[in-house]
């Protein structure tokens, strides 16, 4: 369950990251307050995920945190690629 929440937080972080790069990922430009929120989300979500991950066990937690980064990032990239292909 914790792993799912950590992945969810990484998903939030990647979503914020993608929205902050509108030209690269072909998204609409954010408004200044929206940009501010996205920057905060990009920093806060991984930090929260890390705290959640290391709470039960430090080393296992760090390994899980990195692994969830990789797997969630891969899923986000696949989703973006399919979206781009559909749009094309």
């Amino acid at each position: 369950m914790i792993f799912v929440i950590i992945c969810g937080l990484w998903l939030l972080a990647f979503t914020c990251h993608v929205r902050l790069q509108p030209a690269r990922y072909r998204f609409a430009r954010l408004t200044p307050p929206g940009r501010c929120m996205a920057i905060m989300g990009r920093v806060a979500a991984p930090a929260c995920a890390l705290m959640l991950a290391i709470r039960p066990d430090g080393m296992t937690g760090i390994l899980t945190w990195f692994a969830s980064l990789s797997i969630t990032g891969l899923l986000v990239a696949l989703w973006l690629a399919l979206r781009r292909r559909t749009a094309a």
Partner: peptide, 10 residues
């Protein structure tokens, strides 16, 4: 960092 989730299948 900017291209961390960049994949262009098309």
């Amino acid at each position: 960092v900017p291209d961390i989730v960049m994949l262009r299948l098309s």
